[in-house]
Design a protein around this nucleic acid. Sequence first.
DNA 1: CTAACTGCAAATATTTTGCTTGCCG
DNA 2: CGGCAAGCAAAATATTTGCAGTTAG
Lengths: 162, 162
Amino acid sequence: MKSQSAEESRIAQLCVEHGLKMTGQRRVIARVLSDADDHPDVEELYRRASALDSRISVATVYRTVRLLEEKGILERRDFGGGRARYEATEGGRHHYHLIDVDNGKVIEFEDPEHEELMRRVAERLGFDFVSMRLELFGKKRPQPVKETKAPARARKKKEAGS
Amino acid sequence: MKSQSAEESRIAQLCVEHGLKMTGQRRVIARVLSDADDHPDVEELYRRASALDSRISVATVYRTVRLLEEKGILERRDFGGGRARYEATEGGRHHYHLIDVDNGKVIEFEDPEHEELMRRVAERLGFDFVSMRLELFGKKRPQPVKETKAPARARKKKEAGS
DNA sequence: CTAACTGCAAATATTTTGCTTGCCG
DNA sequence: CGGCAAGCAAAATATTTGCAGTTAG
């Protein structure tokens, strides 16, 4: 969560800068996206947006995320599970995702030197770096008995942590 | 393309090692996968497999790739475009993908130090490295007039190069 | 005023599944 | 043999789209 004030959300501002028409529903979706600090899929976005304003249809959410992705305001992610997930494009620093293969939980991490490395790779291949996507899959290493915490070994099928 | 001989394909061997039953259609799909040096989606796999043996249904291809992915023999990729793509898991060296945002073409590249870097990241976060996925998006940098070759600026919508 | 946007429902696209039959080990 | 696997078609998901009515700029 970020601003939450009555003023225009960060994403709404970007929409304006890109010359998009700011309708009521688009403003709501923009706020939901601006406030999200996870990686919601369309259904989840629809749920959150509906809570703020019930006059919104899923089709609009789909249309909006597609539009914002084309404009480079949003980035689509695929963490497995069939549905596309979205998160706001970050200006400078990129962050990456480590997915726990046992429960699908997503952990974010940064690695400053990484983007620079990728820029060089792209350049070496004759390309200008546009964007990147990095997903690391790992298995939680059994901690060397740190404290008294329940193991909690689950194995849900669908919908894992965002 | 790799072996092409009448003997068991590399992937078929892996199936056996994993205790999977080798049926006729599974053997054909395994051969197609072994021979592929690109990233076919299910429909393309189905097409290639059907060419070798018409008694194969798409459902079987779907079931097979899912099974092989679970066994770690195949890895699923998402290069955008809605369909999942597959490629055989590599033993040691990983390779990555640079996608040309202008035409969807995929260029493979390697970066030996990269996997080591990611292993360390996973470790730092308390995980054992299982696998990773890295997609780099770039725009072809206008070459400094190399030779006489047509520009060929296309902009296809669907189905781009594998 | 009009091009862009929305809702709704129908259309697509992709992947999964139920059920019966077949074949590997 | 016995159970895993395959075919086929229907079902389940996910996403897109046609059309008519709204609305931001």
